[in-house]
């Protein structure tokens, strides 16, 4: 029974409360770095790393932090993990670090992270908080990767750098430019909400 609740906490971030398609949080990285599937995946992974460890620490220190200074305390904790994530990317994945550029340090101000800590991690026990953080991170990563894959496919004819559409397809450059981010996000969001309204059994089970 206990595992099932953890699974529920994990699952709601994926579908029912997806941070991008439902909560519309963290729009800056969502729109800016999803020019390719691999960039979306890397940004999602870095954000999940930060969210997971920040939520873990936040639930533990929650009892000793006076509520007046909780925001600065959480901001410092988040900033610490963001800097570590940035250093890890620079040390082990230099090409990805170059592609994501300034958007890795900007994870600090991703409102999804502070939002989940405020709304969930500080009001719930340790394990459900971790499950929630992982679920939200996974939902965010999946959304960014799908967005990146669609834009890469339409804008460059490739997915994860592998040529899919070939030279017969003239790439729609606009898709990997900023306007393409809005177009694809809008269409995906509409599609996602349409599917959710239909109340498909798969979605209900996962949610």
């Amino acid at each position: 029974m206990k595992n099932e609740t953890l699974l529920t906490h994990f699952g709601k971030g994926l579908i029912q409360n997806n941070p991008v398609f439902v909560q519309v949080l963290g729009m800056c990285p969502t729109l800016a770095v999803t020019t390719s599937a691999v960039n979306g995946l890397a940004m999602g992974a870095a954000t999940t790393f930060v969210l997971f460890f920040s939520a873990a620490i936040a639930t533990l220190v929650n009892v000793i932090v006076p509520s007046q200074v909780r925001i600065p305390v959480y901001a410092v904790i988040i900033a610490t993990f963001v800097t570590i994530a940035d250093l890890i990317l620079k040390a082990f994945f230099p090409p990805l670090s170059a592609a994501l550029g300034p958007y890795v340090p900007l994870i600090v101000v991703n409102c999804m992270i502070l939002g989940r800590i405020e709304a969930f991690a500080t009001r719930n026990p340790f394990l459900p908080s971790l499950a929630d953080a992982l679920g939200m991170g996974a939902g965010f990563t999946a959304a960014l990767m799908i967005l990146g894959a669609v834009r890469e496919l339409l804008g460059a004819g490739e997915i994860f750098g592998a040529v899919i559409l070939g030279s017969a397809y003239p790439p729609m450059l606009i898709m990997i430019l900023p306007p393409g981010a809005f177009l694809v996000l809008g269409i995906l969001m509409a599609l996602f909400n349409h599917l959710q309204e239909k109340d498909l059994p798969i979605l209900r089970k996962a949610g």
Partner: peptide, 13 residues
């Protein structure tokens, strides 16, 4: 609390 958090964070970094 704030000072302690800042010190721990600084050391970690």
């Amino acid at each position: 609390v704030l000072t302690t958090v800042a010190i721990i964070s600084g050391t970690t970094l």
